[in-house]
């Protein structure tokens, strides 16, 4: 039933067709930050002079995203804590080149304990066995973990969601085949699968993306498949079919937006897993290679020195960094779930 309003409204004051919502703004800004960061990390050599200034605009963007997210999720303390932890690391990653830090790869003085000053330089978190500043390496290291972790997760989502939509919406033979393939991949222990892929393809950041996609996509496919099967029977999908929409339109425009809720929660959790995976892989010597700073590498390189309790800080600092990032992702997922249940 309607209210008798419309006659009074002149047609000219109609708002525009698309007023940007805070969520859209956040997503656009995040995409911008992620693009700058990944260009900075993945193809540093091709940028020339631009390399120096590339990340500057990303810093205010990160801060804006943080403020917007805090406003949107202020009802959930857990989400606020999670967002703050994750956004702090992203801010650090974007700001690292402009912070007054020592060169993370330059050996200065080995085995300096935290809070020591030598030659006029203060090592707040000490130096490692090769004499590189741990504070600098930890902050710089956030770049690689974030860029490769988020990119790999995103890539796994694109592949997994698409396959899941195909299996769930088209069903039948497609579903049988894709589900069988997915189950086969899932039956491998994850680490073995990753090691196999990386050994076969060679060790690089891009191959980590492929390896993570291979191992995560089947699980994502299953989630999306279930959600798509539920959506397939809805009247609005039938309405789209009866006006002759194409399969791709129905999958991407009619179904995908409606399954985003559970997917976003799962994506946050999976970002955590992927961070663990990448850190483990680099710890095992697969994937990212020295000398550039990376948390997994730092833990690996410090592993033998840190056997002495005195030098345990070399391993504790990067470990705490990894843990806070993963915890941030997990808290964010919990918060989003809590909020979705409140509505």
């Amino acid at each position: 039933m309607n209210s008798p309003l419309p006659a009074a409204l002149p047609p000219a004051v109609l708002p525009g067709w698309r007023r940007p919502e805070p969520l859209t703004v956040v997503l656009l800004l995040l995409a911008f930050v992620w693009l700058s960061l990944s260009t900075y990390v993945m193809v540093p050599d091709r940028l020339g002079v631009a390399h120096r200034w590339l990340l500057l605009p990303a810093i205010p963007a990160v801060i804006a995203v943080h403020v917007l997210l805090l406003r949107m999720f202020s009802r959930s303390t857990v989400a606020v804590v999670g967002i703050t932890m994750v956004m702090l690391w992203i801010l650090v990653a974007a700001a690292a080149p402009y912070l007054p830090l020592l060169d993370p790869n330059r050996p200065v003085a080995p085995y300096q304990m935290p809070f020591t000053t030598k030659n006029g330089m203060t090592f707040w978190l000490g130096t490692d066995m090769r004499g590189r500043d741990i504070l600098s390496r930890t902050l710089w290291g956030s770049q690689r973990v974030l860029v490769w972790g988020i990119t790999a997760t995103f890539s796994a989502y694109v592949v997994g969601a698409f396959l899941g939509l195909v299996a769930g919406y088209l069903g039948g033979w497609w579903d049988e085949a894709l589900s069988f393939l997915g189950n086969m991949v899932l039956s491998f222990p994850v680490m073995i699968l990753l090691i196999l892929v990386l050994n076969y393809l060679g060790q690089s950041g891009f191959n980590i993306i492929i390896a993570v996609t291979c191992s995560s996509a089947p699980a994502i496919m299953r989630i999306v498949r279930g959600l798509a099967m539920d959506a397939r029977g809805r009247d609005y999908i039938q309405a789209a079919q009866t006006r002759g929409e194409s399969v791709v339109w129905i999958m991407l425009i009619e179904i995908l937006p409606n399954v985003r809720g559970p997917l976003i929660v799962d994506a946050c959790l999976r970002l955590g897993y992927t961070t663990v995976m990448i850190t483990t892989l680099t710890f095992l010597g697969l994937g990212l290679q020295p000398p550039d700073p990376d948390w997994g590498l730092m833990i690996k390189e410090a592993a033998s020195s840190a056997l002495l309790w005195k030098f345990a800080y070399m391993i504790i600092v990067p470990s705490i960094a990894v843990s806070t990032l993963i915890l941030g992702f997990n808290l964010l997922a919990d918060g989003l779930r809590e909020l979705s249940q409140k509505d």
Binding site: N2, S3, L5, P6, L9, P11, L14, P15, W17, R19
Partner: peptide
């Protein structure tokens, strides 16, 4: 018989 602002 719905108000026009329902477009949004």
């Amino acid at each position: 018989k719905l108000p026009r602002e329902f477009v949004m």
